[in-house]
């Protein structure tokens, strides 16, 4: 088995906020009818978390589930745990119209942290990143400069950013540019 490699292994930048490329993480996409009891039960038993409400992300022990669209969920887990979760979900959904795919290597993850972290994001996205709109438990799919991305809070003044792997360098560069010391706006 080959070693998993993230898009920008270990890249980091210390500006007025810290930007770090995160190591590989398990990601499983689940598509189906969220109203169906079979899908809800399958997700609960395989991941241990309920299907989140619209636009939300729910965290478990080492896992998380994010609502990506009206028929699409993203399960986050340890990279090694993916085969077990995929098989568990596929078996539970064998008789249901649903899709479960391991997409761990399709995306890149970043962590942006620091007191002024919202300013870094606000420079890049048209989305409302104020604490009222983008608080804990909210996952906002939007764009960062020219590419689609997902943003959610992982702690006090820390966000995680998800983008497609092919644009990982671009997203790292724009986050870096937005966090350059001296470019603080002081809005939030």
């Amino acid at each position: 088995m080959s070693e998993p490699v993230s898009a920008l292994a270990g890249a980091r930048f210390d500006g007025f906020a810290k930007v770090e490329a995160l190591p590989p993480r398990g990601m499983v996409t689940v598509r189906g009818d969220f109203e169906s009891a079979a899908l809800q039960a399958a997700v609960r038993s395989a991941v241990g978390i309920d299907v989140p409400e619209t636009g939300r992300v729910l965290f478990g022990v080492g896992t998380a589930i994010a609502w990506l669209s009206p028929d699409e969920l993203m399960v986050f887990c340890a990279y090694d745990a993916v085969p077990e979760i995929v098989v568990g979900l596929q078996n539970a959904l064998a008789d249901t119209h649903a899709l479960v795919v391991d997409v761990s290597d399709a995306r890149a993850l970043f962590r942006v942290s620091g007191l002024d972290v919202r300013e870094v994001l606000a420079k890049l996205t048209p989305a409302d990143v104020s604490p009222n709109a983008l608080g804990p438990g909210v996952l906002r799919r939007t764009r960062l400069a020219q590419v689609p991305a997902g943003i959610w809070m992982t702690g006090e003044s820390a966000f995680e950013v998800m983008c497609f792997r092919s644009v990982a360098q671009y997203v790292f560069d724009i986050l870096k540019g937005a966090a350059i010391p001296g470019s603080e706006v002081g809005y939030f």
């Binding site: 669209s69 009206p70 048209p126 906002r140 799919r141």
Partner: peptide
């Protein structure tokens, strides 16, 4: 109407 978020024209 699906996400419930206010989406800027450039997101659409």
């Amino acid at each position: 109407p699906y996400c419930g978020v206010m989406a800027d024209e450039t997101e659409l």
